[in-house]
Structure formats: C-alpha cells, structure tokens
C-alpha cells in the first residue's frame, strides 16, 4: 500500500514536471521573436553584422529607434515613421468610435426590438465578418473615386467603419441577447421610449462590451494593411504600409536594427492595449466562435 502511494506520488511529480517543462519551452519559443526584435533594435549595426543575433546587446543604443521614428526612408521620403504613426491614429480613432457606436445601436435593435426580418438582416450583416476583402476592393476603389475620397484618410476611415459594422454588431448583439428582455419591458412600463431605454439602461450596462468592441476595432484597424495599401498613397499611408516600405527599401547596408525598431514602433500601440486590457482582447477574439 505504502509503495503504491509512493509510486503514485512520484508519477504525479514527473507528470507535473513534464507539463511545466513543455509549457515553459513553448513560452520561450513564443517570446523569442519579441526578444529578438527588442534586443536587435537597441544594438549597434556593427554588432549585428558581427553575428550577435540572440544575445544581449553589448551596449544599448536607441539610435535605431530615433532613426526609425524620424529619419528612415520608405522609398519616396526619409521622414521616418512619425507622420504615418499620426496618420494611423487619425484614421483609427474616428473609425473605432463610429463603428462601435453603430454596432451598439444595431445590436440593440436586433435583440430588443425584433421585427419580422430582423434576423435575416443580422444574417446578412454577419457574413460581412468573414468577407474576403479582395472581393470588394475594386468597386470600393471606384466608389471612393466617385466620392472624391480616393487616396485620402477620410476615405480610409469610411472603409474601416463600413466593414467594421459587421463585427461590432455581432459583439453587441451577443451581449444584449444576455440582458433580459424584461428589463426593456419594465422600462417601457416606466414610460421610457426607444432612445431613452438605449441611453439610460442598455448603454450603461454595456460597458464591458464597449471596451471589447473598441479594442477589437482598434487592433484590426491599426494592423490593417490591405485597405491602407489599396486606398491610400504616399503621405496618407497608415503605419503598416510605411513599415513594409521601410523594411523593403534596398539601399546600401541593410539596417536591421532600424527595421526592428520600426516594427516595434508599429506594434507598440496594440501591444500596449493588449497588456492593459488583455482580458477584453481575448473576449473579442473568441466572440467570433461563440454561438451567434
């Protein structure tokens, strides 16, 4: 009996060791690119070419960050990432606010004011979540041209808002579905109308999903490349397009430290949001998989 228990305990300990070992190994693999990015970005170029890839920098320097931010060339100009970083902020913020606002009211109508056909409308919207954007790029480019928005930031804001509605509506619909209808009925008996119920009761209760929607939209729009590359040009490009251009410029000795610093700059806003509000980010991520 005693030996049985001892062997059981030993087996258990080995099992735990294997589990922790595999998890830490995977964690190391997942952290490696970030580590390489950060260390490379603060090394001197000479050190990099001397063959220090994974090790700590001998001497930390932020020259590469400075270059990436304000001097790096992207083929047309050498102004660094700064103007494009600002572009991305200018386009992301309004697009996030508008798409989230529209999604909130859509979700409210679809769940609390159902009418014949509202489910069909939801189904039509939902497919927009999974639209391969290649299928709409050409007509969108034509339409933006007709609207006089071709190549401009407002044009890109419009595109992101329009194609963001599907996801934000899904978020709010799934959230509002779990709020009992009785709440709306109680408010109706209290004399509140469509707008009053939305503003006074639903929106205050929807704070968590508003955060989820904003974070999701922020990440999606900040990280977008296809729309940015298709609908803007030159000065109006978002940061992802500028980053790709900087990295692909082939003139002289390749400045890997600048490339990594530029990649870090492009990644920082979304990484920051992820670190601060990871819980909400995960909820947005899995929302596409929860029951519709």
């Amino acid at each position: 009996m005693a030996t049985n228990a001892a062997s059981f305990r030993r087996q258990h300990r080995i099992g735990r060791a294997v589990i922790y070992g595999s998890l830490f190994f995977m964690a190391a693999f997942y952290l490696m690119p970030l580590w390489v990015m950060i260390t490379t970005s603060v090394k001197h170029l000479d050190e990099i070419y001397a063959g220090s890839f994974i090790g700590l920098p001998q001497q930390i320097t932020f020259d590469a960050w400075r270059t990436a931010w304000s001097e790096a060339c992207n083929g047309t100009a050498c102004r660094g990432l700064k103007p494009y970083f600002i572009n991305s902020l200018l386009l992301t913020i309004p697009a996030v606010i508008m798409s989230t606002g529209i999604g909130a009211i859509n979700g409210y109508v679809i769940t609390k004011w159902r009418f014949p056909g509202s489910n069909v409308i939801f189904g039509l919207l939902l497919f927009g979540c999974f639209l391969p954007f290649q299928a709409v790029i050409l007509p969108m480019a034509q339409t933006l041209g007709m609207l006089g928005l071709a190549g401009s930031l407002p044009g890109l804001v419009l595109v992101h808002t329009v194609y963001g509605i599907a996801f934000t509506t899904l978020f709010f619909r799934n959230y509002f579905v779990s709020i009992p209808d009785e709440l709306v009925r109680a408010a109706k008996i209290d004399g509140a109308g469509f707008i009053r119920i939305f503003v006074s009761i639903m929106l205050p209760a929807a704070l968590p999903i508003i955060v989820v929607s904003c974070i999701w939209q922020f990440t999606q729009i900040w990280n977008d490349y296809l729309f940015g590359a298709s609908f803007t040009a030159g000065e109006n490009a978002p940061i992802t397009v500028a980053l790709n251009n900087i990295v692909n410029v082939s003139m002289g000795r390749k400045e890997y430290n600048v490339d990594m610093a530029a990649a870090m700059i492009a990644a920082l806003p979304t990484l920051f949001v992820y670190v601060v509000a990871g819980r909400y980010f995960v909820r947005g991520l899995t929302a596409g998989a929860v029951k519709g």
């Binding site: 009992p180 009785e182 009925r185 109680a186 209290d190 009761i201 205050p204």
Partner: peptide
C-alpha cells in the same frame, strides 16, 4: 395605448431591476 398610458405597474419574474442604477434611481426612473 402604450404601456405608460395604461395606468399600470408591473413586477417581473427576474425583477428586471436596471443593473447600473441604484435602488433609489430604479424606483425614481419612471
């Protein structure tokens, strides 16, 4: 007539209290 014009009050199974309001605000809302 809409509910608010029928001179009625209603108590629900799930209570239907407005979750973001205090008890006082719940009672005062109407």
């Amino acid at each position: 007539l809409s509910p608010k014009d029928r001179d009625i009050a209603m108590v629900f199974q799930s209570y239907a209290l407005y979750p973001t309001m205090t008890v006082r605000q719940n009672i005062e809302f109407g």
